[in-house]
């Protein structure tokens, strides 16, 4: 490619291999890709019965499902943060045997069908399951409870947070951590003052992905938690059920679910750009 100098590149000391013009055919395929995602959304929006929209989404069962979905997705995101941040730190920073295998296994819920995840949870925490049997003796019964919904959501959403955060940790590198340590900061201080602020964007986007994934969870919930209004029937389960008798209600609820997910994702993705830039003025003199 003959040099077609990009205005923004002039006067910067960038490596030549970092600049890559996007060929036109890539744009064409990218447009197709975007259409492939967007068209079905438009198709669904076109099906929404707007005259009945408000009554459809404010029925008692719909509101119960929406509230339950928001509650459980929030709880499972919190659980993902508590368990996922340490997991990502260990995977990115520590060195031990079997680390690669551990990473591959932890990412399994990303690629395994959620129903399989639900079955795995059932055979572990169910009444007859590996651990569930002992829990049952102690009087703890997880199946058919809201706890089961949160567990199913956390199971499928955790890899999203771990993956996103681990990537940020590796990109951020250990320079600043090392400097802080040589200045006498203890590991916990380094984690709190340097590492976490550095990877905040990755942490936020990971948490948002986890929330969105939890909000859309269906298969594992249905298999592990069952379906009862106000207890375990989240919005996706309600949509699937309504589809049987009232397609209009199913479409309205689907639209609601998409709207909620869209709001959450767009809100969270707008903010995280700044912290990294201000904290790590890369290339600054």
């Amino acid at each position: 490619m003959p040099a077609l100098a990009h205005p923004k590149l002039q006067g910067r000391t960038q490596q030549p291999w970092q600049f890559q013009a996007v060929p036109r055919w890539v744009f064409a395929l990218a447009a197709l890709g975007a259409l492939f995602i967007l068209l079905p959304l438009f198709g669904m929006v076109a099906k929404v019965n707007w005259a009945q929209f408000i009554p459809l989404i404010t029925s008692e069962s719909s509101l119960d499902a929406l509230v339950l979905s928001l509650k459980t997705a929030t709880a499972s995101t919190a659980l993902c943060l508590i368990l996922g941040v340490p997991l990502a730190l260990v995977l990115a920073r520590a060195h031990f045997g079997g680390q690669r295998i551990l990473r591959a296994l932890i990412l399994l819920p990303l690629v395994v069908p959620p129903v399989v995840g639900g079955l795995a949870l059932l055979y572990t925490f169910g009444r007859e399951g590996l651990i569930g049997r002992s829990l049952n003796v102690l009087g703890i019964d997880i199946a058919f409870s809201t706890t089961a919904v949160i567990m199913a959501q956390t199971f499928v959403a955790l890899p999203f947070l771990v993956l996103s955060l681990e990537g940020s940790l590796r990109t951020a590198g250990q320079k600043y951590e090392a400097v802080a340590a040589t200045l006498g900061a203890r590991p916990s201080t380094v984690l709190r003052r340097i590492t976490l602020p550095l990877v905040l964007p990755g942490l936020v986007s990971g948490a948002v992905l986890a929330f969105a994934r939890s909000l859309g969870e269906f298969g594992a919930t249905l298999t592990f938690a069952g379906s009862l209004q106000g207890v375990t029937r989240t919005l996706p389960l309600e949509i699937y059920l309504q589809r049987e008798i009232d397609p209009d209600a199913a479409v309205a609820l689907s639209f609601l679910l998409i709207a909620v997910a869209l709001v959450v994702v767009s809100l969270a993705y707008r903010t995280p750009r700044s912290p990294l830039r201000t904290l790590v003025p890369r290339g600054a003199p």
Binding site: G226, L228, R233
Partner: peptide, 8 residues
Amino acid sequence: LTPVSEEL
């Protein structure tokens, strides 16, 4: 009936 779950 007071079911713990109403399956699909």
